[in-house]
Design a protein around this nucleic acid. Structure first.
Lengths: 205, 205
DNA sequence: TAGCTATTTGACCAACTGGTCAAACTCACG
DNA sequence: CGTGAGTTTGACCAGTTGGTCAAATAGCTA
């Protein structure tokens, strides 16, 4: 395996190629459904060569998930307690939908993992994710208490945003099968904007 | 393999046990991740005995999916053009959420299949599902044109219902990891009711 | 360019997988 | 209770899989 000195030019290139190929294969077939041979073929390398850069199939999957979870939570982290509440939330929804459009493989990698019970990522969910969510929920509750957005269950509000946006990546085949030629994301953007405006616009006592 | 006369007592019992075990295993690990041995163990039968009742692993999966898709669409079929629009839609949402709570394995079986590109069910999506959806969308458009519910993109309205309700089955681990001890479905029921009331209540011109 | 390190691979292995099959066992019914 | 159909299984097989390893090759630097 490569030494842990500074990575060489070749190491950088090959690691990146492997992770990209692994993302393709894992997101399309799940961990168990993916084969190292398939990833090797997609990366244009031999199987033993993959295992020269990563000690095991599991390690490739872990590397992807670790990198992913962080990126995935960025939009939520960016929710700004100084901003205008409704604007902030609509921007969050918009940004999450953008990620479903631009990084569907990442979304499906995550979906595969969660649907199957999060066997390799549960700890991160109940620690990192929960901590961040609890923090942002406090912010939402503050906004609701001040009457700046309508009062709804803050956790379910976040669940709804995840669910509604990731659906367009994870269930892409179904959405397109039903929608025909129409672009799903154009319609979704308008729809979600309307939905959250109506749900969250401050309402008289 | 069993003859195609009327199924015997033993056939009925074993087929049911196998399908139940297969649902457990397929929904938890995906098609590729499931093994026949695992299903056999869960069903309390030997592997060759499973293959006496079903010609292949594939056949077990197909049997489950075929049965599922029908059940899965029942709540949408039940949307009644004679009913009060908002009531009908809220009842649909409620019924779908109920299915997520009572049949999470079925939901995850379906999710596994779709996330991975629906390789074994695509045709049913683009035929049966699309036909039914197009039909119900016409109904929704009628209600919107008559001002009986607010105007939104009808396809995305249906997507949102699927997404928001199935999320509680498919992403159950994540939801519970974030929510702690609170029951997800109690909160979800109230939240979704509020959401769709605000989204769909008829609004002045 | 010599010599050392980093990279690559063909050949291989043990474990596992879906599936087969003949032989054994169990059951319903006359 | 005998008999034929229905049911069950141990032993087996060929293909696939994740992973190893020694030997070969390419790259870098003195």
């Amino acid at each position: 395996m490569p030494q842990d000195r500074a990575p060489t030019r070749i190491q950088k290139k090959n690691r990146a190629a492997i992770l990209d190929a692994a993302l393709n294969v894992f997101s399309a077939h799940g961990f168990r459904g993916a084969t190292v041979d398939q990833i090797a073929a997609e990366a244009g390398l031999s199987k033993p060569n993959l295992l020269y850069y990563f000690p095991s199939k599991e390690a490739m999957h872990e590397a992807l998930l670790a990198e992913l979870l962080d990126t995935w939570l960025d939009p939520l982290r960016a929710l700004d307690d100084q901003g205008e509440p409704l604007t902030e939330l609509l921007a969050y929804v918009h940004r999450k939908l953008e990620m479903s459009r631009d990084y569907p493989r990442e979304s499906r990698l995550f979906a595969n993992e969660i649907v199957q019970g999060a066997p390799r990522i549960y700890q991160a969910l109940s620690e990192d994710l929960k901590t961040l969510v609890d923090d942002k929920v406090a912010l939402l509750e503050g906004w609701m208490a001040a009457g700046r957005i309508a009062r709804v269950h803050p956790y379910h509000l976040l669940f709804s945003i995840w669910s509604l946006t990731q659906h367009y990546a994870d269930f892409d085949v179904q959405v397109r099968a039903v929608l025909g030629n129409e672009d799903p994301f154009d319609g979704a953007d308008v729809f979600l904007d309307t939905l959250y405006r109506r749900l969250l616009s401050p309402r008289p006592e």
